[in-house]
Amino acid sequence: MTLERCLLLAFALFAIGVYGALTRRHLVGLLISIELMLNAANINLAAFAHFRPGDATGGATFALFTIAVAACEMAAALSIVVAMYRRRRNLDLDKLRSLREPIEAEPGAGKAP
């Protein structure tokens, strides 16, 4: 194993995550794809710390902070998912567009198509 192979693996993982984030229609599926991309970035950090000269503890330290921030992000994002489902009864990303265009009639809970 060399640095180059580790980086290739991380790039492939990131590209799979990008494909998933662009094509999933479910809000939870989108978050899962984002997790894959964050893991690709963490593999890069650990690989550079392992194979490059210099301070080798930096990679693991920064990856630890990334994991902490990702955990916070997921907690907030999943509570947004729960609130959104309670309000709209729907987690289809193509239908959650109230930030982009005004809603004519506010669909109440349980009545949205």
Partner: peptide, 8 residues
């Protein structure tokens, strides 16, 4: 497992 291989 990759992290273990990368000495972390």
């Amino acid at each position: 497992g990759h992290y273990v291989l990368l000495n972390a």
